[in-house]
């Protein structure tokens, strides 16, 4: 945690170069899969900032993503606002709504926090369908929302660019003492308060960062899909996919959620011929449960352990 070394920078650079060359190497179909992986990685990183670090589990993250997505969709589709304006506005609205959403959650601890967030998501799901269906499109949602780019390759570059900017900036942010303090809250909140820090302010700030990332991801996502529907968005299966991505990859890291998102998306692609429908959640969930029970810190930690072992063996040989 003591800062950023050249090796880190080199690893990020190798990863970015690889991803930039990807469209040359794989088919358009695979590229579309990677686009989904990029968006899932953004949502997973957003979830991890609040839940993976501080241990306050959000079961209602689609609430934040949905606000970002709906705001920009309504502004651009219903009011013809240019996307360049509607997306930043959507991010601001998500941050404000996220803060309002967090205020009651501030008063509650542990399990109750998870439940309030779940209640918020369900509330949103029901309200979206009833309140002003002329704006939200009610149960059927909206289609024909402006898309930002045409074709798989352009959309891939757009989604990857967004993901990598978010990932790297979150990675840098979490390397600072702020990141350390958030992890400390996850380990023992009283001791953080006992160190003279306002945990409320720390959590609130973490929540706003998380909401910002979720809002960005949600807004770009709706402009990629071109459509939005409440059932697909405010769905417990969606929460599940985000959480499972983080857990499989490794909570409280940045690489972990990315790793998990890619793993899940490719697993889905690989399983598609055998399990076309919702059954894939069965495989997802089972894998996630096994990994979670065996190593709660996920694949990232498993890989790191092997790496450390390898280094010890290597050091022993020379």
């Amino acid at each position: 945690m003591t800062g950023i070394s050249w090796r880190h920078v080199a690893l990020w650079a190798v990863f970015i170069i690889f991803m930039l060359l990807l469209p040359e190497m794989v088919s358009k179909g695979t590229l579309r899969t990677v686009i989904f992986a990029n968006f899932l990685a953004i949502f997973a990183i957003s979830w991890d900032v609040i839940s993976g670090r501080t241990g306050y589990i959000s079961f209602g993250h689609p609430f934040l993503i949905g606000i970002g997505a709906y705001t920009t969709a309504i502004l651009s589709y219903r009011f013809g606002m240019p996307v360049g304006l509607s997306i930043p506005l959507a991010v601001c609205v998500t941050m404000v709504a996220g803060t309002l959403f967090f205020l009651p959650a501030l008063r509650v601890k542990g399990s109750y926090f998870a439940l309030v967030t779940l209640a918020f998501m369900e509330l949103m799901y029901q309200l979206v369908q009833v309140i002003r269906p002329d704006l939200t499109g009610g149960t059927r949602g909206m289609s024909g929302v402006t898309t930002l780019a045409r074709g798989a390759v352009n959309n891939y570059y757009l989604s990857f660019g967004l993901m990598i900017v978010i990932a790297v900036s979150m990675w840098v942010l979490m390397k600072t003492r702020f990141g350390t303090a958030l992890s400390a809250i996850g380990m023992n909140e009283e001791s953080v308060r006992g160190s003279g820090l306002s945990t409320t302010r720390l959590k609130l700030f973490a929540f706003m960062v998380s909401a910002m990332v979720a809002g960005l991801g949600g807004a770009f996502y709706v402009h990629y899909l071109g459509s939005i529907a409440p059932r697909a968005l405010f769905d417990i299966n969606f929460v599940f996919t985000i959480i499972v991505a983080v857990l499989i990859g490794g909570a409280s890291t940045i690489v972990g959620p990315m790793l998990g998102a890619f793993f899940l998306t490719f697993l889905l692609e690989y399983l598609r011929p055998y399990l076309p429908g919702a059954e894939r959640y069965f495989i997802y969930g089972s894998i996630a449960l096994v990994i979670y029970m065996y190593q709660p810190k996920g694949l990232y930690e498993i890989v790191m352990q092997q790496w450390r072992k390898y280094r010890v063996v290597k050091a022993g040989e020379t």
């Binding site: 945690m1 003492r177 350390t180 303090a181 380990m187 023992n188």
Partner: peptide, 23 residues
């Protein structure tokens, strides 16, 4: 803090209560 070493534990105590400075 269970997952932090001795110096990191002390680091939390040394932090200023100001998120901007922390970052």
């Amino acid at each position: 803090f269970a997952d932090m070493n001795v110096l990191e534990n002390i680091r939390v105590g040394l932090m200023p209560d100001n998120i901007w400075q922390m970052i």
